[in-house]
Lab assay of single mutants.
Amino acid sequence: KKKREHFRQLLDETSAITLTSTWKEVKKIIKEDPRCIKFSSSDRKKQREFEEYIRD
């Protein structure tokens, strides 16, 4: 659960993310961040979390 919170925090702090951002764009920006790396090695899982984040 904590990894998820850190991942969401990373998304919060990434000012380039807007409601129209695509995962492909965002992934390029955040892929080097340790919170992104630690969250999951599964790209699909990160994408799902990102899409949920955008909906919230």
Rank of each mutant, 00 (worst) to 15 (best):
D56I: 15
E51Y: 08
E13A: 07
S15F: 06
I37N: 10
R44L: 11
V26H: 02
R35N: 11
I37A: 12
F50M: 06
K46H: 08
S41R: 14
K27L: 08
A16M: 15
A16E: 13
I17S: 01
V26F: 01
T18I: 02
F50H: 06
T18M: 04
L11N: 03
S41I: 08
K45H: 04
T18Y: 08
D33F: 15
Q9H: 05
R48F: 10
R4Y: 11
S41Y: 09
K1T: 00
L19S: 12
P34M: 08
D43Y: 00
D43V: 11
S21K: 02
H6Q: 15
W23P: 09
L19H: 06
S40L: 01
K27M: 02
R8G: 05
E52S: 14
K1V: 15
S15R: 09
K3P: 06
H6G: 12
L10E: 03
K38L: 11
S42V: 14
D43E: 11
I17F: 01
R55G: 12
K38G: 13
E25W: 06
K46P: 04
C36E: 07
Q47G: 06
E13M: 09
D33H: 00
P34H: 03
T18K: 01
V26C: 06
K3W: 01
D56Y: 15
D12A: 09
E13L: 07
K1Q: 09
S21D: 02
S41N: 10
K3E: 10
T22C: 05
K2D: 15
K27A: 06
V26E: 02
K46G: 05
R8V: 04
K31R: 13
D12T: 06
I30Y: 00
K38Q: 15
E32W: 08
Y53W: 15
T20G: 11
P34R: 04
K2F: 13
I54R: 13
F7K: 04
D43S: 01
H6L: 15
E52A: 15
S41E: 12
R48E: 15
R44I: 12
I54T: 12
T14G: 01
E13G: 00
P34C: 04
E49D: 03
R4G: 09
D12F: 02
S40E: 08
W23M: 00
Q47P: 07
H6E: 15
R4A: 12
E52H: 09
S21V: 00
S15K: 14
V26W: 00
I29E: 11
P34L: 08
Y53M: 03
E52F: 06
D43I: 14
L11M: 03
E52I: 14
K28M: 09
V26D: 07
T20I: 06
E51S: 07
I54S: 12
F50D: 13
T14C: 13
T18L: 10
I29N: 12
W23E: 10
R55S: 11
E32C: 06
S21R: 00
S15D: 13
S40N: 07
D12E: 13
R48G: 11
E32H: 12
R8E: 05
T22H: 06
T20N: 13
E25K: 02
K46N: 02
R8L: 06
Q47M: 05
E51R: 06
D33R: 00
T22E: 11
S40W: 04
R55N: 12
D33W: 13
K28N: 15
S42M: 08
L19P: 14
E25F: 01
P34E: 14
E51V: 03
T20C: 08
S15V: 11
F39W: 02
I37M: 12
I37V: 12
V26S: 02
R4V: 10
K2L: 08
F50P: 08
K27C: 09
S15A: 13
I17G: 03
R35S: 02
K38E: 15
K38C: 12
E25T: 02
K31P: 03
Y53N: 09
L10V: 03
K28Q: 15
I30F: 05
F39H: 05
I54V: 14
F39R: 01
T18H: 15
L10W: 01
R44Y: 13
D43K: 04
F7L: 03
R44G: 10
K45C: 08
R44D: 11
Q9N: 11
V26L: 00
K3V: 08
E49V: 11
I17M: 04
K31N: 14
A16K: 10
T20E: 10
P34Q: 05
K3F: 09
I29K: 07
E13W: 09
D12W: 01
I29P: 09
D33Y: 03
C36S: 07
R35D: 05
T14Q: 10
R48D: 14
Q9V: 01
K3A: 06
I37K: 14
K24L: 12
Q47A: 10
E51F: 03
I29C: 10
Y53T: 05
K45R: 13
K3H: 13
K3S: 10
L10C: 04
T14K: 03
I54E: 11
E51I: 01
T22F: 01
H6P: 02
Q9W: 00
K1R: 07
S21G: 04
F7V: 01
I17P: 05
K27H: 06
C36L: 01
T18R: 03
E51Q: 10
K31L: 07
K3T: 02
L10H: 04
S40Y: 01
I37P: 10
S41A: 12
R55T: 08
H6N: 15
R8S: 02
K45G: 10
Q9D: 10
S41P: 11
Y53R: 00
S42A: 13
I30C: 05
D12Y: 02
I30E: 09
R44E: 14
P34I: 12
K27G: 02
K27Q: 05
